[in-house]
Computed example of a mutant assay.
Amino acid sequence: MKEMMAIDWSTMPVPIDDGGASHLKGHPVPGIALNSTDGGTVDLSRLAGRVVIYAYPWKKRPDGPLPDGWVSIPGAAGCTPQSCAFRDHAGEIKAAGASYIFGLSTQDTPYQRGAVERLQLPYPLLSDEHLSLAKALSLPTFTTAGMKLLKRLTMVINDGVIEHVFYPVFPPDRNATEVLSWLEMRCGK
């Protein structure tokens, strides 16, 4: 069964655009190998065509607790609904012009594999557990419960260059349809 969480977004704090991603559009993606849940590594700078990569902070295990104060952090909640929305729209996103779809977090690959299986994701998750990509691109981050995490954003990369950035992303479960609409307008599909 495909997992999906219902969240009342009206009760969640809305993230503001703090300018943390304003420098990314037009920036070349550095050649960094990221561990992938489908085995091996992925270097986003070497992928031809359009790549959609959504960064999310932290995905909890179904039986695990959230970090203290998680739901009060603007933009933190919603990793599972965002992933499920990309899962549900993956075919349409690819038909609209994306060659690849990836999720990205600072969680390690074994942890992420559980999410891929549980959520039946048709695309891999990439791990930036050492914050190599985050540092190289100066991606927006925050710290909670002793963890440095990515702020939620989505990048469209075209032939190794960041073409568009969705930031901040809220509510997360609508991000996939926003990306789809952008691709359809951009690619004329």
Rank of each mutant, 00 (worst) to 15 (best):
A6W: 12
A6P: 00
D8L: 03
D8V: 03
D8T: 04
W9I: 11
S10N: 13
S10Y: 08
S10V: 08
S10A: 13
S10D: 13
T11Q: 14
M12E: 05
M12N: 00
P13V: 06
P13C: 08
V14G: 05
V14T: 12
I16L: 12
I16G: 05
D17R: 04
D17P: 04
D18N: 12
D18G: 05
G19K: 07
G19L: 08
G20K: 09
G20I: 08
A21H: 10
S22V: 04
H23C: 04
L24R: 00
L24E: 01
K25S: 13
K25H: 09
V29P: 06
V29E: 09
P30K: 04
P30C: 04
P30Q: 04
P30G: 05
G31P: 02
I32Y: 05
I32F: 11
I32L: 09
A33P: 00
A33E: 00
L34R: 01
L34S: 02
L34V: 10
N35C: 07
N35M: 12
N35K: 14
N35D: 15
S36N: 01
T37K: 11
T37R: 08
D38G: 07
G39R: 06
G39D: 12
G39Q: 08
G40W: 08
G40I: 10
T41D: 08
T41A: 07
T41R: 06
V42L: 05
D43A: 09
L44T: 03
L44S: 01
S45N: 13
R46W: 03
R46Q: 14
R46F: 01
R46T: 13
L47P: 00
A48R: 15
A48T: 14
A48D: 14
G49M: 10
G49K: 12
G49P: 10
R50N: 13
R50G: 09
V51D: 00
V52N: 05
I53R: 10
Y54T: 15
Y54F: 15
Y54V: 14
Y54D: 06
A55T: 04
A55F: 12
A55Q: 02
A55W: 05
